[in-house]
Write a protein that binds this DNA or RNA. Structure first.
Lengths: 220, 220
DNA sequence: GTCTATACTTGGATAGAC
DNA sequence: GTCTATCCAAGTATAGAC
């Protein structure tokens, strides 16, 4: 069986075209989504940023939406790799929160999350786009769940909330913090939350303590 | 000194016009934002939904954005009143979470939050809109903080996270859950989270127990 | 593969009749 | 106050020259 493609109809054309122009357009689409949002990301504004002609958008990607999806794919892949590397080997809750905090700060500064946010918002006005975006969010929820499992596998936290629901909450918080922070450009509250989350995470952690003979957990 | 208006430049024209048509346009703008998002909310599509002419948008509100802000004001006022009534008199954390859960479910079903979400997202593409929307979110953050104070005023929770940061997180979660739920129309995860939040809230609650002589709190 | 030119559509906004 | 008519700007998409 060949590699299975996305289930939705909307998808970037995989066809030919100069790789350099393709990449320039994708990069420009990312920047345009960040700077002008979904409704500001027209073929003309993107091509202008890429320094090429508007018609190339349709030659390479068939439609504007497909280019925007390719842009989302690019950002998502790049960031997922970064997150995976940072979280790799992390097992304690405090380490996980620390890693997530420092990389999320990168995201806030660079505006990576707003690419996703804008595509989610834009899905309301473009039939079929919703499922295409949902497919691209799934890897993130799965990643979050794996990370939660690794850090809180057996703890008071996961006994109160299933890891899958925690993962959903984390992604939702991720998206929500980006939206609020983007409004006034103040990333302070978001960063403060991560700082506090560190203390909260410790509350719910089960100390590894392999030498302590199955004592009672610190949390009720 | 007269009542102070919003600090930002963008604001709905308070001028005349038939109140019935004004209200019809606002109502139609709300529905259009819910159904077609920010980029789908043109003067023509809104007027079509309201059953009147496109030019009336500009006669009554001056611009499309101002009409959309008036729509956000209407939804925000209506929901804030509803939330205030539901939370009024609530003091225990479990009660607060219960009240919030049932009303948030209404919001998800009716799509009230997506009006806010779309305006936040649209702010990226319209200069000046960001601060105007931020002004309309502030009452919600304040409301959340008051509610948190009433329920967790002196508890382990507020000693770990300042109420202001909790309020910010709540609003962010509110926005994020709406976005994710809107993508695939599945409100299940959001509702499940509220269910679990009930148990979490109890963990952090200080039992009122007026007859117990200042014993140690249950949480470390 | 990239550009120019162009057809067609939609949207914001105004003028003027009623 | 509401409608019709209209202007202009911007967007999608295609055809054809180079």
């Amino acid at each position: 069986m060949a590699k299975a493609g996305p289930a939705s109809k909307i998808q970037p054309a995989e066809g030919g075209g100069s790789p350099t122009t393709r990449r320039a357009l994708i990069e420009a689409a990312v920047e345009t989504l960040k700077a002008e949002g979904f409704s500001g990301s027209s073929a003309r504004s993107i091509a202008g940023r890429a320094g090429c002609n508007q018609g190339l958008v349709f030659y390479h990607f068939g439609s504007v939406v497909n280019l925007l999806l390719a842009a989302l794919d690019a950002v998502s892949a790049e960031r997922l790799e970064r997150y995976s590397a940072a979280v790799d080997g992390v097992e304690s809750p405090a380490e996980l929160v620390d890693a997530a905090a420092s990389i999320f700060e990168e995201d806030l500064d660079a505006g990576h999350v707003s690419v996703l946010v804008q595509m989610i918002a834009g899905a309301s006005s473009t039939p079929g786009l919703g499922t295409a975006v949902a497919e691209r969010i799934a890897p993130w929820t799965e990643f979050a769940q794996r990370s939660v499992d690794a850090a809180w596998g057996d703890s008071a936290l996961t006994s109160v909330i299933p890891p899958g629901d925690i993962a959903h909450a984390v992604v939702a918080m991720y998206v929500g913090l980006e939206m609020l922070g983007h409004l006034d450009g103040d990333r302070g509250p978001a960063l403060a939350l991560f700082e506090h989350a560190r203390a909260l995470a410790a509350l719910f952690s089960v100390p590894p303590a392999p030498d302590r003979p199955s004592g009672r957990s610190r949390t009720p």
